[in-house]
């Protein structure tokens, strides 16, 4: 049996800075995961991924990551994705710096 689809977001890194970014419902990119579109349907997820990958001018390394609904928008499920929303743990650098 195929595994049930778990909610996801489309994420990537910004081409110029390399900063983590997420694909929104409007078809653009946000530096804040809470703005991302939470994808609950597999077929829609595939379309979003293709759409996001087509945007070669501003992004690199597009992929689907597991996510869950939170109070202010999608939140990470896996710790790797949590780190991407804030930055490294040894210095206050990256997103947590702002």
């Amino acid at each position: 049996m195929a595994r049930p689809f778990t909610p996801k977001v489309v994420t990537a890194n910004a081409l110029l800075e390399g900063d983590a970014i997420w694909f929104t419902e409007n078809g653009d990119w946000s530096r804040d995961m809470a703005d991302a579109e939470l994808i609950t349907d597999e077929a829609h997820g595939d379309i979003c991924l293709l759409e996001a990958q087509a945007d070669q001018s501003a992004v690199a390394g597009v992929y689907l990551a597991d996510a869950k609904a939170g109070a202010h928008g999608p939140e990470p499920v896996h710790f790797r994705e949590t780190f991407r929303t804030r930055g490294p743990s040894n210095y206050v650098h990256g997103k947590q710096e702002a």
């Binding site: 890194n13 081409l15 800075e17 390399g18 900063d19 983590a20 070669q56 992004v59 690199a60 390394g61 790797r80 780190f83 991407r84 930055g87 490294p88 650098h93 990256g94 997103k95």
Partner: peptide
């Protein structure tokens, strides 16, 4: 494209990591 660029940047030591 990124696929075309990636091997070129790697040859020059440039990786894309989690935050940058």
């Amino acid at each position: 494209t990124e696929d075309e660029f990636k091997p070129l940047r790697l040859m020059n030591g440039l990786y894309l990591q989690l935050h940058a």
